[in-house]
Design a binder for these strands. Structure first.
Length: 237
DNA sequence: TGCCAGGCCCTCTTTAGGGCCTT
């Protein structure tokens, strides 16, 4: 473990730091404590034999990143050349990384039962579940998805890729794209921006992970009705 | 040799097809 490392890692270092060094803080936080995760992998599908090569998790609380975890991991599989070029994670880097089982146990403990968020969570949840299953662990919490939420709350964005949304929203870049910690930091900042959109446009004062999960399952056309119902329920209780 | 995922969402739709998004 190393404290206070930069997000731009080129080796197999594992980091865990607090709080944020990237200087982004949402002025008014209405979002409950959540963990934003991002995987780098050898491909798109664990069902086809693809494995994780890197994991990052950042804890969001009070409008800022308060804790972070990142590590490369060695799953004993070869990284295709295309993926090496995409992520910058090479087979040489993976050879000296800690075993995948060890890293997954650490990050599972780091996240605990904190509600999870990822950009295109259907992808990260598949790898999260598959890597945990290999060490006989199960995920206790649900994933919310910043991609699904941004399609509902930022329909005017030209693209809903993570990098494009960060640029569209005027959020800071956190480092090299397609590295786990940088992408997790950017997804975290995007999530804070989406929470602020909910507060500013719909006067939602407290945003729970449950509400995010409900909104991401709500068709666009019914989003406002869903939020109106949520606000009415909050006023009654 | 050829092919290779899967969920979401829109539309020229719903008994379907194709683009987007993740690596």
């Amino acid at each position: 473990m190393h404290l206070g490392k930069s997000a731009e890692l080129s080796t197999n270092e594992t980091i865990r730091t607090a709080p944020s060094h990237f200087g982004f803080r949402q002025e008014v936080s209405v979002l409950e404590v959540v963990a934003v995760i991002d995987f780098e992998t050898t491909g798109l599908s664990p069902a086809q034999g693809d494995r994780a090569t890197e994991i990052a998790a950042v804890i969001l609380a009070d409008g800022q990143v308060v804790d972070r975890y990142q590590s490369l991991m060695n799953a004993g599989v070869r990284i295709p050349a295309f993926i090496e070029g995409l992520t910058g994670i090479s087979n040489q880097m993976i050879r000296s990384a800690p075993p995948a089982a060890e890293v997954m146990r650490e990050v599972f403990e780091f996240v605990g039962k904190t509600p999870l968020i990822a950009h295109n969570a259907s992808f990260d949840s598949k790898f999260w579940d598959a890597e945990l299953a290999r060490i006989e662990l199960c995920r206790p919490q649900e994933f919310a998805c910043s991609l699904l939420l941004s399609r509902r709350l930022l329909p005017q964005a030209p693209s809903h890729k993570l990098g494009a949304l960060v640029e569209f929203a005027g959020l800071p870049a956190a480092g090299r794209a397609h590295r786990a910690l940088a992408d997790a930091e950017m997804a975290a900042n995007l999530m804070l921006h989406l929470a602020d959109e909910l507060r500013r446009r719909y006067q939602v004062e407290e945003i729970s992970h449950n509400l995010l999960c409900k909104l991401q399952r709500t068709p666009k056309a019914k989003l406002e009705a869903c939020l109106a119902q949520h606000l009415a329920t909050c006023q009654d209780s």
